[in-house]
Design a protein around this nucleic acid. Structure first.
Lengths: 136, 136
DNA sequence: AATATAGTTCGTCGGTTGGCGAAATAACGA
DNA sequence: TCGTTATTTCGCCAACCGACGAACTATATT
């Protein structure tokens, strides 16, 4: 029951669900997920931590970057079924579709650029970019 | 996405999950669920409302009683899969097992008695019963 | 060593949630 | 009709949650 509620709790937030869908057959670093969700880095970090504790996501460290992927090692039957449910339920969801599209653009960019942009300014949700002049 | 989050939200509470499990192949009236969960009637009522809005539970009115059952009419694929996931994930859960056992006792009782008991006193969670003297 | 940078942790704030009891509602029985 | 009773609605409170920015940590790069 404990683990089950950890999973349903993790799935009860749109940002986390979108993250899971974005990770379908793909590894993403935190800054890319941050870019996709347009949330503060700290918020995304917490979301990922919740997904990890639920056993839905695993993490790999490579230098300064942390890459996330769906738990493909030996996920519990519970987690595996949950992911299947998420996937089949939301494959055609408009929001998810749009994310996949935007993700393609994000993947074309150099992660370094993404991070630099995030540091430089983060009024969040301003899809129009400001002058990338140094902050402070 | 909307409906999906309604379902995961509904599943992110132990009482509601236990309710769903209790309703497996069975109809229960609100007072029986209240007895099982040992919560205030008003609380259980709200839980059931949430399960209904998520499309997981349906309700049938019979006189003064309201009977709940799993949505077997035409549940969305989403809801159907969710219920299957819940069921297979928690079939062997100790808590769920215990509930099934206690449920048998509850089903042997007359619903009227259960309700009377609940009205008479509700210090909740006091499994030892008080003198059923009239309240107020 | 000093600087820069990718993420995490911490503290805070506002909004939501789960719980309760009291009051309202609905439906039967006398 | 009047009370009884099964459930819902309302109003409240404490706990939790998601969001943020600031401060910290860890890992390059210079």
């Amino acid at each position: 029951m404990r683990q089950f509620l950890a999973i349903t709790g993790a799935l009860a937030d749109e940002g986390r669900v979108r993250t899971l869908l974005a990770l379908h057959r793909r590894e993403l670093c935190v800054c890319q997920i941050t870019e996709l969700l347009k949330l503060a880095t700290s918020t995304v970090s917490k979301h990922i931590s919740i997904l990890r504790h639920a056993g839905l996501v695993e993490v790999r460290k490579d230098g300064r970057w942390i890459y996330c992927r769906l738990s493909d090692r030996q996920p519990s039957a519970m987690a595996r079924q949950a992911m299947q449910w998420v996937q089949t339920s939301l494959q055609r969801d408009p929001r998810a579709r749009d994310d996949q599209k935007r993700l393609k653009a994000i993947l074309k960019e150099d992660p370094e650029d993404i991070c630099r942009r995030q540091m430089g300014k983060s009024p969040c949700c301003s899809s129009a970019r400001e002058t990338p002049a140094a902050a402070r």
